[in-house]
Simulated scan of single mutants.
Amino acid sequence: MEHLIRVQNDYDRQVLAWLRGRIGDAALQTAALRLGGQRKPYLSTICRSLGIRPPSRRQFAAEAARMHRAVGDTYLARIREILGQSPAEAALRQ
């Protein structure tokens, strides 16, 4: 989709992924072609034309932190499970 829309930084990439999930590629492509003309439109221009306000940088960061915490909790639970086993049980699992 970056061949149709001007993407300048990581935040733009996050917004583009969010927008693709929200409205779909076909609608996004139609909006980009309608607004593009000779130049690729900015992502903010596309959002304004669709009447959609993307999440803020802070919201994306909070979501990433929640995901990282969930992954970490999963690994910690597995480590605790391994440490709670007797040495004989641990040898059988390897």
Rank of each mutant, 00 (worst) to 15 (best):
A88L: 03
L35W: 09
R58G: 06
I82W: 02
R20H: 09
Y42Q: 12
E89M: 02
Y75Q: 10
R34G: 07
H68K: 15
R78V: 00
R58S: 11
H3L: 08
R48M: 07
G21C: 07
A27W: 05
P87Q: 02
Q38E: 14
G37Q: 06
F60K: 03
S44V: 10
L35M: 13
D10S: 10
R93I: 00
A26Q: 15
A64F: 10
D25I: 11
D10H: 11
I52G: 08
G51W: 14
Y75H: 14
R13H: 07
L33P: 02
L50G: 08
N9S: 02
R22N: 10
K40R: 15
K40F: 04
R69F: 02
F60E: 04
A62C: 06
A91C: 01
M1F: 08
S56W: 05
H68V: 13
A17S: 12
D12K: 03
E2A: 12
R57E: 10
F60H: 13
R93G: 01
L35P: 09
V7P: 06
D10P: 02
R48F: 07
S44R: 15
Q14S: 13
R22G: 02
R78G: 00
R53I: 11
Q59E: 15
D73V: 01
E2V: 10
V7G: 06
A32H: 08
L76K: 04
K40S: 07
E2I: 11
P87D: 01
Q14F: 06
P87K: 01
A26D: 14
S44K: 15
E63A: 15
F60Q: 04
M1G: 11
R57D: 08
G37T: 04
G84I: 00
H3A: 11
E63G: 03
D10F: 05
A65L: 14
I79D: 00
A90W: 00
T45R: 15
I82K: 02
G21H: 08
H3G: 10
D10N: 13
D10E: 14
G72L: 09
R13S: 06
E2Y: 06
G72I: 01
I79C: 01
A62T: 12
G36D: 10
E2R: 15
R53S: 13
L4G: 05
R34L: 08
D12V: 01
Q8F: 07
R57I: 09
W18A: 03
A77N: 00
S56L: 06
Q94D: 08
H3Q: 14
P54A: 08
A17H: 06
Q94E: 12
T30I: 10
A32K: 05
G72K: 04
D12H: 15
A31R: 11
A61R: 12
W18D: 04
R69P: 01
A26G: 09
G21D: 15
Y11C: 02
S49R: 14
Q38M: 09
L28A: 09
W18G: 03
P87S: 00
I5A: 07
G37R: 07
V71I: 13
P54Y: 12
A32W: 05
L50E: 14
Q14E: 14
R39I: 05
R39H: 13
